[in-house]
Amino acid sequence: MKLSFGTVIQDQPNYFIEKIWKGLTNLSDHLEKDYYQYLQRHLEKFNRSWDGDQYTEFLEPKIHTIRKDAGNLWHSGMEISMVIDIDTPEEFQFAPVLACQHIQTIAISKTENKPVQLSIDGRFLPAAELHQFAVNDGFQDAEALYAYFKDDFKGKLIHWTAFKY
């Protein structure tokens, strides 16, 4: 199934493509060759490299993503095709097809005058773990994650690596 990613958040580049690739190349050296093939395809299609290619060494890997899944479509073992600009003439698959390693439930609760709470599979993450979770999802920190999710949220955490909370 296609898994669509944006390339900007609040008018700023998010470097999700590069962060995902950093996580993939950390998993396996043989994917480094694939990285250059997909980068070349992007260059040919859009006449430019992806935005943060020159900054990759400074980026932290994105190893999962958060999605609503009202239809309960996502499950372990299914194929993931990572794309940008889904269902447009500019749609581009930027990584090889991957297997979904596992799914976890996620809930973000925002109550006035209380700290934001985030739970995965019903377990509330302590403050020390929240920062790493946000980074693993491609955000700079927990505050940036919470700013993106403006309201309460329930959904799925889709993993394409073996990492699990």
Rank of each mutant, 00 (worst) to 15 (best):
M1H: 09
M1R: 09
L3M: 10
S4F: 07
F5L: 08
G6S: 10
V8H: 14
V8F: 15
I9E: 09
P13T: 02
P13Y: 07
Y15D: 06
Y15P: 04
F16N: 06
W21G: 06
G23Y: 05
L24V: 05
L27R: 02
L27D: 01
L27T: 03
L31P: 04
K33Y: 12
K33S: 14
Y35P: 03
Y35W: 09
Y35R: 15
Q37E: 15
L39K: 13
R41D: 14
H42K: 09
S49A: 15
S49M: 14
Q54I: 11
Q54H: 13
T56I: 15
E57Q: 09
L59F: 08
P61K: 07
P61D: 03
T65D: 03
D69V: 02
A70V: 12
G71C: 06
N72V: 13
N72G: 10
L73P: 01
L73V: 10
L73N: 05
W74A: 04
E79A: 14
E79T: 15
S81T: 08
I84E: 06
I84W: 07
I84F: 08
D85N: 14
I86W: 12
T88K: 09
P89T: 10
P89I: 10
E90M: 11
E91P: 03
F94L: 07
A95S: 14
A95P: 02
V97T: 12
V97K: 15
L98S: 07
C100V: 11
I103V: 13
I106P: 00
I106S: 00
K110S: 00
K110T: 00
T111R: 10
E112P: 11
N113A: 04
K114P: 02
K114M: 07
K114N: 08
P115C: 05
V116S: 05
Q117P: 00
D121F: 01
G122E: 02
F124W: 08
P126G: 13
P126C: 10
P126N: 11
A127H: 12
A127T: 15
A128F: 15
E129F: 13
L130P: 04
L130H: 12
H131N: 12
A134Y: 04
G138I: 02
F139M: 05
F139P: 03
Q140I: 13
D141N: 12
A142K: 11
A142E: 15
Y146I: 00
Y146C: 02
A147C: 02
K150V: 03
G155L: 00
K156T: 02
K156Q: 06
W160D: 05
T161N: 11
A162F: 06
F163N: 14
